[in-house]
Nucleic acid binder design. Structure first.
Lengths: 232, 232, 232, 232
DNA sequence: CATGAATGAGGGTTCATTCAT
DNA sequence: CATGAATGAACCCTCATTCAT
């Protein structure tokens, strides 16, 4: 019986170590995917960034694609954790949409690593992103049912939202812009959907609580890793 | 004197052959870049598509980047040839912009290969594209001087145009959409920029002459190559 | 604490393996450079001789020049280990020079692989050779200060030593010669430098201890590899 | 009958043109072999140096080796034309040898291209060289029959001559040396063979007529090509 | 479970040679 | 006979993945 308890303890410790290592690898992978300049070996870069051996990496991920997917999933999850609780409190579809766009842009502005990852990662980085593929279409549909976004086709509305946001991420990463860039862009998105200019103006300026991420957040840790390491 | 003429003739014939081969390679490269499934050897795929030896490829392009650039330049040139003559006849910046967006989307719809190339090619496919980097900012600036696009920052306006167009290309390539998709998207873009809904509605529906490309157009030849070959 | 020891042990084992592989590659490279019939792929030949994959080679040497340099350095080091301890015991510059030449020729006679390597390797095989570029000029200068090698320019003396030795290596590799070939050649070299014939005769015949190389010597191992393998 | 004469004339003209082109190619090949920095394509370098097409080259030489051989033969022939008439007038083997060595070194000093070619060309540049493989052994043998070069083995003597000369070529190409370098080296060579120092001193200083090469000489033309072209 | 040496298929590139014009 | 575009075998090197320690 005591033996049993010892074993349990060992198992639990092992599991925790495994989880920590996995998180460490994901964090470094996010950095690598974000900074990657299309040269050199992805996995070499990762293992040396994470300071583990190749073998260790393959103990956690079978293949390089699996890693990218895992990062994308985790990134998607964290974005959702930031955006959803806030949006969920709003009733009007246009307000929800405005808030979602603002939060995403705000997050990307605060975390350039995230923006780079989304831009660089290409399709793979967003395939499976719930915010994009589930929540956004739902809000658009809800808006149309509510008589907003008059006469839109859903796919047109989708492109009118996603397009500017993606272009905006690009801009945030590559260009110096005013602080109100997210606001202005959001306002444009709303107007594109047929929201009246005054309301668009209003919604794009709604006060939002400071974005909060848990201390152990992948995104935060990756960002601070980027901020601290780039000697050279 | 006769000798001189013979030499001239030879030189001309050789130059023509060279130009034809170069065009052939660019055409095949456009197809390969557009269809490329991220696997296999780019240059192998190209040389087998173009039915030439590897050596021949390197007689024309030093490196595969040089090839991508050359394709991008030629594609940019042809797009400009289609769009500019029409846009040039219009005076109002919003009308010019509407027409430009409509023509680009129309072109992409008619030539999915072009759309794929732009999407797949990534940054490199558009770096140096005059339509994007010269003409569009100029029209936006002109509009703002004329009092249109009220209160916009240029970069915001840019993202509100380029974003939806890029997203629209994605949609055109991957999804079945109504014939009026380009129209609806264009209308949204105009509204995003603050054009009044009625005018946006009007401008997005202006009749445009059929898009005409010269028979020897790279885009046309690549498209018909894609349409005809896909056995397998 | 036990863990520490385990780690140490692992590290040591890994380092030893690495050193053994490196030595193995150098040994095979020496053989390949020596026998190389100007055909085929250097690296292919090496990897198949050493029975390792291409990848392994590149884990140890970035480029085939680096390999050649590494072999040359090691060969130079071993030659020095043979020659210097003996020469160092002599005071007279002419005796030192005679001994150095005799030992080099004796070594080359015993180890045709070495001779071939020096001849085939060209400039690269000797650039950086200390015996040639440091020790020999020093002995020549010492001789001139001591009043020997009367009226010589250093570079003339250098060529009168190095030229015959290199030609002699060629001869040793390609021709059947008498056992006293090294002696006779050395005598000629000394006379070229103005050493009196009787003294040259004497110095060229001084008894030398048998040449000793450590069992793990690169030169020895390469030689026995050449002797044993040439099936075909 | 007239027709016959016309044909003859045509044939002769064609033959002359062919000979001129061949000489032109050999001249350029000598330059290329001499300057070649182990990079780039030999035949591309040659054809662009000679300003002819690849096809033309292959009308004259089947392969790259054939070209090297042809250059070596022609170079050997011209060296012989310079050296032999002078040497032939001397009776004493040691004087003949001294003169031969002096002339070779003098030629190499006047024509660095020649020296480079011999050094760079490796074995192939000298295989078949009559001066080296026929005339020199003959003079050595004659000397031994005449009681000179006492007690030498022919191959030892050969190496004591060829070695310093080759080393001297290296020196002439790579180092700034006094004008009397050839003289001093020759004197050393003679002493190596057992010639008495005073006689060696005398023979190495015998006045020699200025070296004369025909204006259409391959060596001269190649040299002036090297002297004139090296922009960059 | 961690390690890092070893793998080897496969990528990009070169260049001597051929051949249609 | 001159041309130079076309060829393709062969080379060097990379890097995702495996596996013995």
């Amino acid at each position: 019986m005591e033996k049993q308890m010892v074993e349990d303890h060992r198992v639990r410790v092992a599991e925790e170590r495994r989880a920590r290592m996995r998180a460490h690898l994901l964090e470094c992978a996010l950095v690598v995917f974000a900074l990657r300049k299309q040269d050199g070996s992805l996995i070499d870069t990762l293992t040396s960034t994470a300071d583990v051996s190749r073998g260790t990496f393959y103990n956690y991920f079978c293949t390089h694609e699996e890693l990218l997917d895992a990062v994308a999933v985790e990134v998607g999850r964290e974005m959702l954790h930031v955006v959803d609780p806030v949006v969920r409190q709003l009733a009007d579809p246009d307000a929800r949409l405005a808030t979602g766009v603002l939060l995403c842009l705000g997050l990307a502005r605060k975390l350039p690593t995230l923006a780079s990852f989304i831009i660089r990662g290409g399709a793979a980085a967003l395939s499976g992103n719930e915010l994009l593929h589930d929540y956004l279409p739902r809000d658009i549909a809800a808006g149309m049912e509510a008589g907003q976004f008059a006469g839109m086709q859903p796919r047109v509305a989708f492109d009118l939202v996603v397009g500017p946001v993606m272009a905006g991420l690009h801009t945030l990463v590559s260009t110096e812009v005013d602080d109100d860039f997210p606001t202005m862009l959001t306002q444009g998105v709303l107007m594109a959907l047929g929201v009246a200019p005054e309301r668009a103006h209003f919604l794009a300026r709604q006060p939002l609580a400071e974005i909060r991420l848990p201390a152990e957040s992948l995104l935060l840790r990756a960002e601070s890793r980027v901020t601290n390491l780039p000697h050279e």
